[in-house]
């Protein structure tokens, strides 16, 4: 009995990466990550930071990272954590260890969400086809919980032309379709880069 027995599946298995012919945009399935939602009281953030070995930012939208671990502050007491998949067990255990002195909500959502990566000058407009957020106004290395066509997403900005979306598994195929359709339309209109 081993996990090798069972195949894993990704909701975007059937999709090809999208490359705009004019080079303005690539849409890719993002690298898999271990994912956690962490809620912890503001006065215990230090303890939680210690468990993660990464200082949790307390400014909503801010990001911090240490090694493969990234923490995105999405609410006054809420963080979205990403890490290399092999680290999932260690992170889980270190948070279990602090629970007696630092109660928290650590919940594994590694399979709840999937990531979509957008790179290129056309990324912003493709996203803004259905996301009402001012993404030019979002600074690099910041994240925002927002919506895409009314569906909840987290947008993480890692550069002026680089975004990662975290979307719910069953929303992924639809979001992918709407996003890449919009990218094709923007390319045909000829203003995918914004002007």
């Amino acid at each position: 009995m081993t996990t090798r027995l069972l195949q894993t599946h990704h909701p975007l298995d059937a999709e090809d990466a999208f490359y705009a012919a004019d080079g303005s945009l690539n849409v890719l399935v993002a690298d898999d990550r271990a994912r956690f939602v962490l809620r912890v009281k503001p006065d215990r953030v230090d303890v939680a930071s210690g468990a993660l070995a990464c200082s949790l930012p307390t400014d909503i939208g801010a990001t911090a990272s240490a090694g493969s671990r990234r923490a995105y502050c999405l609410g006054p007491d809420e963080w979205y954590l990403l890490a290399a998949t092999p680290e999932a067990g260690v992170i889980w255990q270190s948070f279990a260890a602090i629970y007696p002195t630092c109660v928290h909500s650590m919940t594994d959502v590694s399979d709840r969400d999937v990531g979509i990566q957008l790179r290129g000058a056309g990324a912003r407009r493709a996203l803004n086809s259905a996301c009402p957020r001012d993404l030019d106004g979002l600074d690099t290395d910041r994240a925002a919980r927002t919506v895409f066509d009314g569906l909840p997403i987290v947008v993480m900005k890692s550069g002026t032309e680089s975004y990662r979306l975290e979307v719910w598994r069953s929303h992924a195929a639809y979001i992918w379709q709407v996003l890449t359709d919009a990218a094709r339309q923007n390319e045909a209109i000829g203003d995918s880069k914004g002007r």
């Binding site: 939602v37 809620r39 009281k41 109660v103 928290h104 909500s105 919940t107 594994d108 959502v109 590694s110 399979d111 709840r112 969400d113 719910w168 598994r169 069953s170």
Partner: peptide, 12 residues
């Protein structure tokens, strides 16, 4: 109350 809620519908 010291309690938190997380949607895990799609985790499982």
């Amino acid at each position: 109350l010291s309690v938190w809620l997380t949607s895990v519908t799609e985790q499982w």
